[in-house]
Design a protein around this nucleic acid. Structure first.
Lengths: 351, 351
DNA sequence: CTGAAAGCGCTTACAG
DNA sequence: CTGAAAGCGCTTACAG
């Protein structure tokens, strides 16, 4: 019961160390009977190979890093971040399935060195970075050093050698706008995200395309530029309300902004969905608890996470990466949208 | 730039390996000039000591395990679990501050073996288990094996050698009930958690004590037994409503049940807080988004997490653990409570 | 295919 | 205090 190593197991099972190792690595060339015997001995003695020794001699950590960056000014990102929470869980689980443990760190953007440390210390074979910020400088440094990394938000980065799951934001936003159009709405506003962000740009394009398909040219007054924060939603609504110019339907480029809009609307006594329909984007956990529960475009975050994990592991193992996938958000209907009510000369819809 | 080891650094800096090591471990006995020189050489060559080699020779992983168990039937627990999310972040950050990395796993309760594996492989020096389930059998096995572990929920376990942060649930619930009493309410119901759970028992006791202080003996009809799930909140409200016997104020033993109650109430057209005041317990992220925003007892989860982390690290390093702390939940007022309205023979309060 | 040796890159006693 | 050696427990070439 004292110190057990693979040598002891070999002796006790009456086989060579090599055989013990084959059993550990599930090699085929071991007779079932021998295999069982070795396994039995290992279990009896609670033997499991020392991971540090393994890492040291094989030069492989079988560990991935997961870096959650605490984005500073605009977005605060915690492990309980509503968007990234499920992604974090999915990555960890998927890596485990693929034989990797996951070392999680929360990182300040001002102290990004500890990320590089983990690579240099050979604590990890690769890493995922989860962040809303523009990480291009960091990623470039990593590329130079040959450190393997996967990302999530393609808002700022797009490089063939860096796995990033691709969401078809334009199409998804188009689908959201079409939904509103099919409800009979013609006066549809949009609340955009940070326009330096590729994702935000694409969602705006999708909105514009959908309206144009119906021969509607989106007026400048219908486009409100935000930064993906809840506060933007509040401000947008208040500005429209102050101008007496609230649209009849509102597409928010993420759920957080929709929450802000909903709050401001309800605070001003404007009824959702009777007076205005609201659609969000993401489908965060909170969306089922808002008032009214938010209709939103669900981003398949878990599938996307599994996909990056698969890509990064393939990269680390120098295998062919899985085929690229194109993800699309799907409509989750709740109670924040209603058919347009007939007014002025608008044609009536429904019923 | 090829393979750098501490020997190379020593040679390049013109010192002994021992000195390099002293620098790495921040030992005092190195002259500042020497120290700087060594550090400069290390930086120039991007040298960082190999973690596997360190672990192997020092028999220490400097790593903690964080096991998020996916509790089966009643509660589902994900990394985005509203209660545990911030706790997870706090543990990781605190461990980092104390010099430990954190290996996170999500665990199925049916496959708890992988938890033991990490200890046997010496991948971790200790671990935290985050779960709603009754873990006593697992913890007992760990104690026998000498594996060090910290927990969160003291609902089921209470042992001197296992760090668990202690929340004074009785006092916290008493404070919540007192708040309702001070608002003038006398007809106050409670929705309890699973009564096998110590935490649930204590919260009920706190409620009872507060009412008795005011000479109110809680009627059986005011106590509704739940299991900490959202659905319990729905059912409780529906049962009371069906009996035409809704209390004027309701203390929910956690936020999730309060969400259910709020939904059911609003679905039946009962106004919160005009017709009934509702108080939750936990202060999850969602509570600011419910309708109306939920007044609730905030559990200092982050402080509690930091405290267990400190305790477990002390245990691992065989140092004296920090002094035990007694945590208390504090009232977070939002909009789900209002003063009792004068009715029948009740004395009037307020104004 | 099998076995004994060398090696992974540190830390830790152990002589000097 | 300093330095050379042994050792941590595996894996990986390398002879046989």
């Amino acid at each position: 019961m004292r110190k057990m190593d693979s040598y002891d197991i070999a002796r006790l099972a009456g086989v060579s160390r090599k055989t013990v190792q084959r059993v550990l690595n599930n090699a085929a060339s071991v007779k079932p009977a021998t295999r069982d015997k070795v396994l039995r001995v290992m279990q009896e003695h609670h033997y499991e190979p020392n991971s540090a020794a393994r890492q040291l001699s094989s030069r492989k950590a079988n560990t991935m890093g997961l870096f959650i960056v605490q984005d500073k000014p605009l977005y605060t990102l915690h492990t309980d971040d509503l968007f990234y929470g499920p992604i974090i869980g999915a990555i960890i689980s998927r890596c485990a399935e693929l034989g990797y443990t996951t070392l999680v760190s929360v990182l300040d953007l001002s102290d990004i060195e500890s990320l590089f440390s983990m690579y240099r210390q050979k604590s990890i074979d690769g890493g995922f970075i989860v962040s809303w910020s523009d990480l291009r400088p960091v990623i470039d440094r990593m590329a130079v050093a040959g450190f393997k990394v996967g990302l999530f938000d393609e808002g700022f980065y797009h490089a063939p050698e860096v796995p990033i799951p691709h969401l078809d934001n334009r199409r998804s936003a188009r689908d959201a706008a079409r939904y509103l159009l099919e409800l009979g709405h013609r006066d549809i506003g949009i609340l955009t995200g940070d326009m330096n962000n590729f994702t935000a740009q694409e969602r705006l394009k999708g909105y514009t395309e959908a309206l144009r398909e119906r021969g509607i040219e989106p007026a400048e007054s219908r486009i409100c530029y935000g930064q993906f924060t809840e506060e933007d939603g509040v401000r947008a609504v208040e500005r429209w309300l102050a101008a007496g110019d609230l649209p009849k339907a509102l597409l928010c480029s993420n759920d957080l902004m929709a929450y802000g809009a909903l709050k401001a609307l309800s605070g001003r006594g404007v009824s959702v969905p009777d007076d205005i329909s609201v659609v969000g984007f993401d489908d965060l956990l909170v969306s089922q608890y808002t008032y009214p529960p938010l209709t939103t475009m669900k981003v398949p975050r878990v599938d996307m996470a599994v996909h990056v994990a698969d890509c990064l592991v393939a990269l680390v193992e120098e295998r062919e990466p899985p085929a690229p996938e194109q993800f699309v958000a799907s409509l989750t209907e709740r109670q924040s949208c209603a058919p347009a009510r007939p007014a002025r000369g608008d044609r009536q819809i429904g019923h």
